[in-house]
Amino acid sequence: MSIQHFRVALIPFFAAFCLPVFAHPETLVKVKDAEDQLGARVGYIELDLNSGKILESFRPEERFPMMSTFKVLLCGAVLSRVDAGQEQLGRRIHYSQNDLVEYSPVTEKHLTDGMTVRELCSAAITMSDNTAANLLLTTIGGPKELTAFLHNMGDHVTRLDRWEPELNEAIPNDERDTTMPAAMATTLRKLLTGELLTLASRQQLIDWMEADKVAGPLLRSALPAGWFIADKSGAGERGSRGIIAALGPDGKPSRIVVIYTTGSQATMDERNRQIAEIGASLIKHW
C-alpha cells in the first residue's frame, strides 16, 4: 500500500482519535458579512469528516447552483462504474471539434489522439474542462443518470439537468442544476469515506481534487503551510461562485467545507476574496 493510499485508508482512524471539535460562531459572522459585502445569498456548511456531524452552517438547506462543483460527483459516478466493471479508466475516447464547448483548455489539445477516461476526469476536476465533463456525462448516460446515481446514494436534493455550459445559467428560483450545502457536503463525505467506492477509487477521487489547479484564489489562499486540501470550485452566471473541499491540518483532511453564493453584482475577484476570507476565519478558529 502506498503512503497516499495509507493516508486515505486511515482518515477515519486518525479522526477518531482527534480531540473533540467545537464550532466557532466567528466564522458564521464572516459568512454573514460576506453576504453584506456581496449583496447576495451565501450558503455555508462545515462537517466533521469522521462523524458527519454538522459543526457550523448557514442557509444549509437553500438551493444554490452547483456550477462546476458537480464534476466531482460526476467522476465519482464514473469511478463507481469502474468498480462495477462497467468502465475502464484506460479506455480512450475520441471526439471532434464539434464536441468542444466553451472553456476546454485540455480537451482542445487532444482532438487528434483523444483522451482516456482517467485523463478526462483529471481534466474535468483539476482544470474544470467543460468538454471533458460533457464527454464523461455521455459515458454514464447524461445528466439524468448522474441525478439517479445521487438518488441511489441517498441524495434526493442534488440534481443535474443540463450539460456544460448551460448548467451554469443560475436563474433565480430555478431548481435545475442545483444542490443544497448540506446535501453536497453529505454526498461528498460519502464519496470520500464511505463504502460506495473502493479504496482505490476513493484515493483516485481525492487525488484529482488535491491536484486542483484553478481554485488557488479561494480556500487555498488562506491555508497555512502543512495543511491538506482537496477541492473543486465552480463559477456561473449572475454572480455565482462555489467551492467544495476536504481539508485539515497535519497533512490530512478532517472536515468537509461547502460554500456557495449566487445573485451578486460583485466582480469575480471580490467573490473570490470573500470566500478566501471565510476560509481564513475557519482556519483561525479551527
Rank of each mutant, 00 (worst) to 15 (best):
A185P: 00
I140P: 00
K144F: 15
E46Q: 10
D231C: 04
S51G: 09
T27Y: 02
G242F: 00
M268T: 08
I206F: 13
T112A: 13
C75A: 12
N152V: 10
T107Q: 01
L135V: 10
R118W: 15
K190I: 08
M66D: 00
H5E: 09
F22V: 06
N50A: 12
D269A: 14
A266N: 12
Q265C: 09
L10S: 10
D99A: 10
I93H: 05
I93E: 05
A84H: 12
G39S: 14
K190E: 15
S264L: 04
I256S: 01
N130L: 02
V78T: 07
A246F: 11
N168G: 11
P60C: 12
D83N: 05
R176T: 06
H94Q: 13
H285R: 11
P105N: 05
L111F: 09
M1D: 01
A183I: 09
D161I: 04
L192F: 12
T139W: 06
Q274G: 09
E270H: 10
I243G: 01
D155G: 01
L89I: 07
I45N: 03
F17H: 10
G43R: 00
H24D: 13
R162A: 06
P217I: 06
A276G: 09
L188D: 00
P172F: 09
P224G: 07
V31W: 02
E62G: 07
E164D: 01
L199N: 14
V8T: 14
D113F: 07
T179D: 00
T179I: 01
T198I: 06
L74M: 09
R176D: 06
L197D: 03
M268P: 07
L150Q: 05
Q204V: 11
T262Y: 15
A124M: 07
V31I: 15
P105Q: 06
S233N: 01
G141T: 05
A245W: 01
L282Q: 06
L79E: 02
T112P: 12
A266M: 13
M153H: 10
H156V: 10
Q37K: 15
P105V: 07
S201A: 10
V21K: 06
E237S: 15
R159K: 11
P253L: 10
S122K: 13
S240Q: 07
T69G: 02
S221P: 09
A40R: 03
V82Q: 06
E237K: 13
T126Q: 09
G234D: 00
K109E: 14
A211L: 13
A23G: 13
I11M: 11
M67R: 01
G242A: 10
E102V: 11
V101C: 10
L73R: 00
T262A: 09
E175G: 10
K213D: 02
M180A: 14
I54K: 07
L192N: 02
I3C: 11
V258Y: 01
S221Q: 12
W286P: 03
H5M: 15
C121G: 05
G234M: 05
V42L: 13
D231R: 03
E277M: 10
M268H: 09
L205W: 03
G76C: 06
P65D: 01
P217T: 11
L196I: 15
G194L: 09
L219S: 03
Q4H: 14
R81Q: 10
S57T: 11
G85H: 11
L160P: 04
A23V: 04
S122W: 11
M67W: 01
Q265Y: 12
P253E: 06
H156L: 12
V72T: 09
G142F: 01
R118T: 14
I11Y: 11
T131Q: 03
D113L: 08
T193H: 14
L188P: 00
K109A: 10
M115V: 06
V72Q: 02
S240D: 05
D129V: 00
D177Q: 01
L218V: 04
N272L: 02
H5I: 06
A215I: 03
Q274K: 12
P25S: 10
L188R: 00
R176I: 05
L282D: 01
I3N: 13
K30A: 10
M1K: 01
M67H: 07
A222F: 08
G263D: 06
G194R: 09
W286N: 03
D113V: 09
R118M: 10
T198V: 07
S80K: 14
V106A: 10
C75L: 05
A215H: 04
V82A: 10
R220H: 04
A16D: 03
L188M: 11
L150Y: 08
G43Y: 00
L150R: 00
L282N: 03
L219C: 04
W286Y: 07
A215Q: 05
A170F: 11
L223W: 03
I243H: 02
M153D: 04
I93V: 13
V106W: 07
W208R: 01
F58I: 08
R162W: 02
T261E: 06
P181L: 03
A211T: 10
L191N: 02
T116K: 06
T261Q: 07
Q203N: 13
G242T: 02
M67V: 10
Y44I: 08
R41K: 15
S57C: 09
P181W: 00
D113H: 11
S68I: 00
S240L: 02
L247A: 05
G90D: 14
A280W: 11
K53L: 13
G194P: 10
A132P: 00
A148S: 15
M268F: 11
S233K: 01
V8Q: 13
D212E: 04
M66P: 01
S233F: 01
T178E: 02
G251C: 09
E270C: 12
T267L: 10
E166R: 11
T69I: 04
D231F: 03
S233Q: 01
P20D: 15
I283D: 01
S2R: 09
E35H: 02
R159D: 06
R176P: 04
A211H: 14
E237R: 13
E119C: 04
T69A: 03
V82T: 09
T179Y: 00
F22E: 15
R162C: 07
R91S: 07
L150K: 00
M180L: 09
D83P: 02
V8E: 10
G43S: 06
M127V: 13
F6Y: 10
M268N: 07
F64W: 03
G43A: 08
Y260D: 00
A84G: 13
D155E: 05
A215D: 02
F13C: 10
V214D: 02
E237M: 15
R220Y: 02
T27S: 07
W227K: 00
K144W: 09
I278A: 02
G52Y: 05
T27I: 08
H110P: 03
N173R: 13
S233E: 01
L219I: 14
T178I: 04
C75N: 02
E35A: 07
M1C: 01
A84F: 09
R241E: 03
H94L: 13
A148L: 14
G226Q: 09
G242M: 02
F228T: 07
R189W: 13
